[in-house]
């Protein structure tokens, strides 16, 4: 039981990543492909947050905020790892800008072709 409880979130991440890859590989609609890319980004972000999470002896993790009342040692004992959270913030911003650019491209493609269907857009050779 304990094992499943521990591994479940990681399995979920990998599953989410795989769903994203599936959407990109199989779907023919530009918007669905964009959703697939978002799923990949979110799966990685989720994974990063999980990497930083740890369960202290008290059974409860605190947000990593240093206050005056908290000594460094106490902070280390009870709070989660702050580094992955900083990484996730950056990763989310990057993911946002990539997705925004993709949406712009999709809109421009729609203006040119009048469709989001990839099978009718293919002009370039393999």
């Amino acid at each position: 039981m304990g094992m499943i409880h521990e591994f479940f979130p990681y399995v979920l991440c990998v599953l989410l990543f795989a769903v994203g890859l599936y959407a990109i590989a199989v779907k023919k609609n530009l918007i669905k492909i964009i959703i697939g890319v978002m799923l990949i980004h979110n799966a990685t972000s989720l994974f990063l947050v999980l990497v930083g999470y740890r369960m202290p002896e008290t059974g409860e993790s605190a947000a990593p905020i240093i206050t005056r009342a908290l000594s460094g040692e106490e902070f280390f004992r009870q709070s989660v790892d702050p580094v992955p959270q900083a990484l996730v913030l950056t990763a989310i911003v990057i993911g946002l800008s990539v997705v925004a650019l993709m949406v712009v491209m999709a809109v421009r493609l729609h203006e040119k072709y009048g469709t989001f269907d990839l099978t009718r857009i293919r002009k370039l050779r393999g």
């Binding site: 990543f17 994203g20 890859l21 980004h41 993709m102 999709a106 421009r108 002009k123």
Partner: peptide, 21 residues
């Protein structure tokens, strides 16, 4: 921003986004 360039850019975007993941 011609159709071929947009299409190439989109393809590049998608594959590169997978790489980043």
């Amino acid at each position: 921003v011609e159709s071929e360039e947009l299409e190439a850019s989109f393809k590049y975007l998608v594959l590169s986004a997978i790489a980043s993941g």
